[in-house]
Amino acid sequence: LLVATSRIPNTQEIGLEHAGVALDDAGAVRVDTFLRTSVPHIWAAGDVIGKETESQMATPVGAHDGKIAAHNALSGESQREVNHSVIPRVIFTDPQVAVVGLTDEEANARGITCECNTIPISAVPRAGAIRDTRGVIKMVLDSPSRRVVGVSMLGVNAGEVIHEAAMALRFGATTDDFIDLIHVYPTMAEALKIVAISFTKDINRLSCCAS
């Protein structure tokens, strides 16, 4: 049983209207990419900004943005912008669900000509070794460039594996980058290499080290 109650910004009854701070329709504080509110000397970060600047209401995002907001408000140095385009997220079910980047539907909505592949976790040698082959991993590409724009995984240790995918998305990695990277065998992170290979090869014919 999974209960998802969602979150709402806690911005009520704290006097924001007296300060002139603008809120969106969901009650989140409106901010720009520098986390500056509608009042030039007030900045905001964390759950109170909701989905502004494509943010997500999660602890590590708030911690990351809080540092930027403090820098912009107090340092007197060049202003820093937030970039919420790559935020890995995990649901700690059993097995775990982990996602970063775009789904194929989201990619299509943005005008990206996408291609996607899904493979079973049973194709990952480590999953067989630990006798937990539940789940799948899916990779979404920008088809012309082969750049990876999204990864979703349901499986053991998905919350650990997704960080490699997040770093790859941040630096514009392609499927070839995943394939050419030497992965430790046997690990669950090999799932990323195997799903990348699946776009051009039959993964059932791979050697033990996914090459």
Rank of each mutant, 00 (worst) to 15 (best):
S6R: 12
E77T: 06
G135W: 09
S152D: 05
G66K: 05
I119E: 07
T113V: 09
H183K: 07
D24I: 03
A58M: 15
Q79M: 13
V3M: 12
V195R: 00
S145V: 04
H18R: 15
F92P: 04
G128H: 07
V156N: 08
L154Q: 07
A127S: 15
S38P: 07
E105Y: 13
P88H: 04
V136A: 07
M167D: 09
T37F: 02
V39S: 11
P144F: 06
E164I: 11
V61W: 01
R7W: 07
A69R: 01
F199N: 01
E13N: 15
E105L: 13
S85P: 02
W43Y: 15
I203A: 09
E160S: 09
T187K: 08
F92A: 07
S207G: 14
M188S: 06
T174K: 04
A70G: 12
V136S: 08
G66N: 11
A45H: 03
E164R: 03
Y185M: 10
G101A: 08
Q96P: 02
V90H: 01
S85R: 12
C114R: 05
V39M: 10
G111F: 02
A107Y: 00
I137L: 14
P120N: 12
F178P: 00
P9G: 00
R89E: 04
G150E: 00
E81N: 14
D202G: 07
E190A: 03
I42S: 03
P120H: 12
V31W: 02
C209G: 06
T113N: 14
I179T: 06
A173Q: 02
N72H: 11
M167T: 13
A196G: 03
H163G: 09
G159C: 12
A129K: 08
P9L: 01
Q56F: 12
T200V: 06
E54C: 05
V61T: 09
A26W: 15
I119L: 10
L141Y: 06
P120R: 10
F34H: 14
S75P: 06
L74F: 15
G159E: 09
T113A: 13
I49W: 03
V31C: 08
I203K: 12
P40N: 08
G155P: 01
T5H: 07
A129T: 11
T113R: 15
D65Y: 04
A73V: 05
A45S: 13
N157D: 14
D142Q: 09
E160D: 15
F171C: 10
L2D: 12
I91A: 15
G76L: 05
V29A: 11
T33P: 07
G159S: 15
V156I: 14
S145M: 07
D104I: 07
H183V: 03
H71Y: 11
A70H: 11
R147V: 13
I87H: 00
I112W: 00
I162T: 01
A127C: 14
H18K: 15
T5A: 10
D104C: 04
L181M: 15
P9R: 00
P120G: 06
S152I: 09
P60S: 04
S78D: 15
N117A: 11
T175F: 02
A28S: 14
D142I: 04
V156A: 13
A129Y: 08
K201C: 09
T5F: 10
E81F: 13
I42W: 03
Q56H: 10
G27E: 11
V149F: 00
M188I: 01
K138T: 14
S122H: 10
D94K: 14
R80T: 05
P125K: 13
R89T: 09
S122K: 15
I194H: 02
P125V: 10
D132W: 09
I130W: 11
